[in-house]
C-alpha cells in the first residue's frame, strides 16, 4: 500500500515535472512567435508608411502640375483672344459700313433732288 502511494506520488511528480518541462519551451516558443508577429507588423507598417509617403509625394507633384496649369489657363483667359480681336475689327468695319450707307443715302437723295430741280 505504501509502495503504491509512493508510486502515485512519483508519477504525479513526474507528470508535473513533465508538464513544467513542456510548459517552458511552449511558453518561450509562444513569446518568440509573439515577437515575430510584432516585428512583422512593424515591418508591414513601415512599408505602408513608405508607400504612403511615396504616393503623397506623387499626388502633391500632380497637384502642383494642375495648379500651374490652372494659373496658365487663367492668364490665357484674361488675355484677349482671336475672338475678341476679330469681333472688334468686325465692329469697326460694321459701324463705318452703316455710317457710309446712311451717308450714301443722303447723298443720293440730294442728287435726286438736284436732278429733279435741274
Amino acid at each position: 500500500m505504501n509502495n503504491c502511494l509512493f508510486n502515485l506520488k512519483k508519477t504525479t511528480f513526474l507528470v508535473v515535472l513533465l508538464l513544467c518541462m513542456l510548459y517552458v519551451p511552449l511558453h518561450f516558443s509562444n513569446a518568440e512567435t509573439n515577437q515575430n508577429k510584432i516585428s512583422s507588423e512593424k515591418n508591414a507598417c513601415t512599408k505602408l508608411l513608405v508607400e504612403l509617403k511615396k504616393q503623397n509625394k506623387m499626388l502633391s507633384r500632380d497637384l502642383g502640375h494642375i495648379k500651374r496649369e490652372l494659373l496658365r489657363l487663367k492668364y490665357e483667359m484674361s488675355r484677349p483672344g482671336l475672338r475678341e480681336i476679330f469681333g472688334g475689327i468686325g465692329y469697326i468695319l460694321g459701324i463705318f459700313g452703316v455710317a457710309a450707307y446712311i451717308k450714301a443715302r443722303q447723298l443720293e437723295k440730294q442728287s435726286n433732288q438736284n436732278s429733279v430741280k435741274g
Binding site: I92, F96, G97, K103
Partner: peptide, 19 residues
C-alpha cells in the same frame, strides 16, 4: 464721305496695335 474707309482701316490698326 471719301475718308470713311481710311478712318475704318486706321481704327482697326489702332485697335489691334495695342496687342
Amino acid at each position: 464721305y471719301e475718308d470713311y474707309p481710311k478712318v475704318a482701316v486706321m481704327t482697326s490698326a489702332f485697335f489691334i496695335a495695342s496687342l
